[in-house]
């Protein structure tokens, strides 16, 4: 009834589900398969450490994925490994977000001024360090077992989570900063200053909620990367330690038995890693497209 002259940037704050491309659909299927394995698998599969009496049995009726060199059911191992890899990836991304989002918010809020400069310099330094090489170095120095830092004991799993998180901080911080730079142009940021809302509360209470969607889309995408990176570390023996399975260390054990004909032992965990990485990537891209479309409307 009443027409207004200024068009709002986004009339709704909900993410409307657009028509999804075939690529996004395939990604969704892959992702759901992986999640099914990682979430439901461990509940259904039985223990991943139990001995079944068959060494390196091929996939068949008795064992869906066959057995490994210590007679453990590979389906149970892979399911548990998928669960662990997923948890570690999410924890790593979570840790990265916890550090990166406040940094990005502060940098974006003070865009162009010294806090922004300082934070950007630190991010650049962090980004210059190739994460993977750094991870190899840290674990090479502190060893693969638990490390004692003052009163705190870091398990090997914790170290992997921290290393992954640290590696992701620059990327998450940049996305947050970009979104914040745009958001800060909105009048309400100044309006709330005039009302008397303290700066930190504007940043954390008002700006954050608007900036989160693109950041969370990024986080989702990077879970796939995290799974891949953790698998790579564990494959080299530097990540999750046995007997705790992870997709990477199962694969690492498996390569020694390729020559003995146990093809399923390597291919299956490798396939799961691939499915997870691709699934998260495609769905994340889809989410990102939906977000862009929503913003453009």
């Amino acid at each position: 009834m009443v027409m207004t002259r200024v068009l709002p940037r986004s009339r709704t704050s909900r993410l409307r589900v657009p028509r999804m491309s075939a690529l996004t659909w395939s990604g969704l299927v892959l992702l759901l398969l992986f999640l099914l394995l990682a979430v439901v698998g461990p509940l259904v599969a039985g223990t991943s450490t139990a001995r079944t009496g068959d060494t390196l049995a091929a996939p068949g009726a008795a064992h869906l994925f066959g057995t490994d060199h210590l007679q453990r059911d590979l389906f149970a191992r892979t399911a548990e490994g998928a669960r662990v890899s997923l948890l570690v990836a999410v924890a790593g991304v979570g840790f990265g977000l916890v550090v990166a989002v406040p940094a990005g918010l502060v940098a974006g809020y003070f865009g162009g001024r010294w806090p922004d400069d300082l934070i950007m310099r630190i991010l650049e330094a962090l980004q210059a360090l190739p994460l993977f090489v750094f991870a190899l170095f840290v674990i090479g120095v502190t060893g693969t077992g638990d490390s004692q830092i003052g009163p705190v004991t870091l398990t090997s799993t914790t170290k992997v989570v921290l290393l992954l998180g640290v590696g992701f901080i620059p990327y998450f911080a940049r996305v947050t900063r970009s979104a914040t730079l745009v958001e800060v142009q909105e009048d309400y940021v100044d309006a709330l200053r005039v009302v008397g809302v303290p700066r930190w509360r504007i940043i954390a209470g008002e700006i954050l909620v608007n900036v989160l969607p693109p950041v969370l889309v990024q986080a989702f995408l990077w879970i796939g990367v995290a799974i891949f990176a953790e698998s790579a570390l564990s494959f080299l023996g530097l990540g999750i330690q046995p007997p705790q399975p992870s997709l990477g260390n199962i694969l690492g054990d498996a390569t020694g038995y390729m020559l003995l004909g146990a093809w399923w032992y390597s291919i299956i965990p490798g396939l799961v890693i691939l499915v997870a990485t691709i699934g998260f990537n495609l769905v994340g891209d889809g989410l990102g497209d939906a977000l862009d479309a929503d913003n453009r409307r």
């Binding site: 994460l131 590696g167 990327y171 940049r174 996305v175 970009s178 979104a179 745009v182 693109p214 889309v217 990024q218 995408l221 990077w222 990367v225 990176a229 990537n281 891209d285 990102g288 977000l291 862009d292 913003n295 453009r296």
Partner: peptide, 14 residues
Amino acid sequence: MINHNMSTFDRRRF
């Protein structure tokens, strides 16, 4: 508008 494509490039490189 956030250019998440830039981050896509970062991710692929990583």
